[in-house]
């Protein structure tokens, strides 16, 4: 469990950094608060990803299994 949590959090850090860089650039281009605002939004983005990274990973795995099962179910219904 702890291992799963740490892997999720580590993935959250990576996803958060990538997401934050997009947010930073967009805020800099569109926001009225300049670089301070862009950094603030980017920091929140990383923080949220770190906080929820493990949950996102859990939902992703549940979703992946669900998608696979529903695809198999659909195929079974279509097959004669």
């Amino acid at each position: 469990m702890a291992m799963f949590f740490w892997i999720g959090t580590a993935l959250g850090v990576v996803a958060g950094m990538l997401h934050a860089s997009l947010v930073f650039r967009r805020r800099l281009a569109e926001g009225s608060g300049g670089i301070a605002e862009a950094v603030y939004f980017a920091a929140w983005t990383i923080a949220l990803w770190i906080m929820f990274g493990a949950y996102v990973m859990a939902f992703w795995i549940v979703g992946l299994i669900g998608m696979a099962l529903s695809r198999i179910g659909r195929r079974a219904r279509v097959a004669p």
Partner: peptide, 20 residues
């Protein structure tokens, strides 16, 4: 943008599980 495309590409199981 790139983010939404990623979410609906490799991240697809997330929207899928949300809507279910």
């Amino acid at each position: 943008g790139r983010l939404a495309r990623t979410l609906h590409g490799v991240g697809k199981p997330l929207p899928w599980v949300f809507w279910r």
